[in-house]
Design a protein around this nucleic acid. Structure first.
Length: 476
DNA sequence: TGAAATGTTGGGGCG
DNA sequence: ACGCCCCAACATTTC
């Protein structure tokens, strides 16, 4: 009787293009697919929106496994202890997994591998979630890249694509009984209150594939322009699927490039999309090289920033009641759907950090809790980018004007109308700055500032000067 | 993957 | 016909 192998799923919730799955099949042994619910898997508990997603994605994975004569064994508790325990219980010879690259997860996996080895078992880790393993893309001097463009050049130059693999048709499950929790017992779906009614997503491998197909058919052709337009469906919306490993980033990149090769879309469009995948990659590699990225300013002078503990401002920002329509639209889209358009993410982040002078970590924490695509590396990297404190960050004086950003990227105001319905009747020329609208225009639109919609909580012009002042004081 | 202030240019209205 | 002013449009500089 061959000893089984444990196939430990973490953030690689798919069966196709999955190196650990492939290794499990090739072992010829019975396979025990495992998921361990561990609050500390990534070094901090995952956010509420991510829990919602995870719940659905685990159900999808479990169903896909059952179709293949297998099942997903669910355990909860300390991941290291649970994996060791299951290995003992089942006499498994080997634990197969796709590596997590968050520093604490990496360290935990290393400890686990040692302890497995002590009991004569093997641990095998693969890269199933990134284009290239962190550390494998380096400058000529052997250092990690700190600037995106040269990083991307080196990435396309050096990274070897993972071969594409179909999901296995069968996965042999051991005959012995294995105790397991149910997915529902993990309590991942929100209760009291369940705010997820507006979430319109299909987590899981099939949902990811459908999302990619939709993107290739409908949006890739105009990606370079429309990706910045929150009033259009111009982005891929793949981010949560990528975060949970429901799709291989190589598959997305190859599919876009293949569309360009066929002549369906211009090469520039496909490369623009590939560059966004490369940003995700850049963040992950940066986090590996600089483990403090989520908590500490990459440029240390930013730790002297005179942040304001503006509790009212933070609350207005979270709830989408700042009085700046584009900011409020974004924050409400986030709360309602668990996602926000990328252009608007930059605008709301700039508003929190620079207009309100609130510590970027405050925004990072809110995004971590509310985004279905919350990712430790991307979230930290992007917040530090906006703050100006990060590697290859926006220059400190780049302060987004929420009005002109709205006029530029949501010219007709459709995005604002959708998410800030109390402004829906305002004409396009004033919808991004209702306080400048003539009284009769406001009246006709049923808007009473300070009553039906807030007045701006700060004056952007004055706030901008205050931020420049504070930021200048750091340069000594 | 800015914005605002400041500088320059050139067309048109007008005396 | 000419110079002058106005100002939009664009370019440059600065934060």
């Amino acid at each position: 009787m061959t000893a089984p192998v444990i196939l430990w799923f973490r953030r690689d919730l798919r069966l196709a293009d999955n190196p650990a799955v492939e290794a499990a099949v090739q072992s010829g042994a019975p396979v025990i697919p495992l998921y361990v619910s561990d609050e500390g898997l990534e070094g901090r508990p995952i956010g509420a929106a991510s829990r919602w997603w995870l719940d659905k994605s685990l159900h999808a994975l479990a169903a896909d496994l059952e179709q293949r004569g297998s099942r997903l064994v669910i355990r909860s508790g300390d991941a290291e202890a649970e994996v060791l325990r299951l290995a003992e219980e089942t006499g498994a010879s080997c634990v197969l997994m796709n590596r997590l690259f968050e520093p604490e997860a990496w360290e935990r996996d290393r400890r686990l591998a040692e302890r497995l080895k002590e009991t004569g078992r093997e641990a095998r880790g693969f890269n199933g979630t990134l284009l290239a393993a962190p550390g494998s893309v380096q400058t000529k001097a052997g250092d990690p890249f700190k600037v995106f463009t040269p990083f991307m050049r080196a990435l396309w130059d050096q990274a070897r694509a993972r071969p594409s693999r179909q999901a296995p048709e069968r996965l042999p499950f051991p005959e012995a009984a294995i105790g397991a929790d149910s997915i529902d017992s993990l309590g991942l779906h929100p209760r009291k209150p369940d705010w997820s009614g507006g979430f319109d997503w299909t987590p899981g491998e099939a949902g990811a594939a459908a999302t990619l197909d939709r993107f290739l058919d409908e949006a890739l052709g105009a990606y370079a322009e429309d990706r910045d337009r929150p009033d259009r469906e111009g982005t891929s919306r793949l981010s949560p699927h990528l975060h949970f490993g429901e799709i291989d980033p190589w598959r997305a990149v190859h599919a876009a490039r293949a569309a360009a090769e066929r002549g369906d879309v211009a090469h520039g469009q496909a490369e623009k999309f590939a560059a966004e995948i490369a940003w995700r990659e850049f963040s992950a590699h940066l986090l590996c090289a600089f483990p403090n990225l989520p908590t500490k300013a990459f440029r240390p002078e930013f730790d002297r920033m005179p942040w304001r503990n503006d509790l009212e401002g933070i609350e207005a920002w979270r709830r989408g009641r700042t009085g700046y329509p584009l900011v409020d639209a974004g924050m409400r889209q986030l709360w309602t759907t668990g996602w926000m358009h990328n252009r608007v993410r930059m605008v709301v982040a700039s508003f929190l950090i620079k207009d309100l002078l609130v510590d970027w970590r405050e925004g990072e924490a809110w995004f971590w809790d509310t985004l279905v695509d919350a990712d430790l590396a991307s979230n930290a990297q992007n917040w530090q980018w906006t703050a100006g404190s990060g590697a290859d960050a926006a220059p400190y004086f780049r302060i987004y004007n929420p009005v002109s950003q709205g006029e530029k990227f949501d010219p007709k105001g459709d995005y604002v109308r959708r998410w800030v319905p109390e402004l829906a009747k305002l004409p396009a020329d004033v919808i991004h700055a209702p306080w400048k609208a003539p009284a009769d225009v406001l009246r006709r639109a049923g808007v009473e500032l300070g009553v039906t919609y807030p007045k701006p909580i700060v004056d952007h012009g004055a706030a901008r000067l205050r931020a420049l002042d504070a930021l200048k004081s750091l340069r000594t």
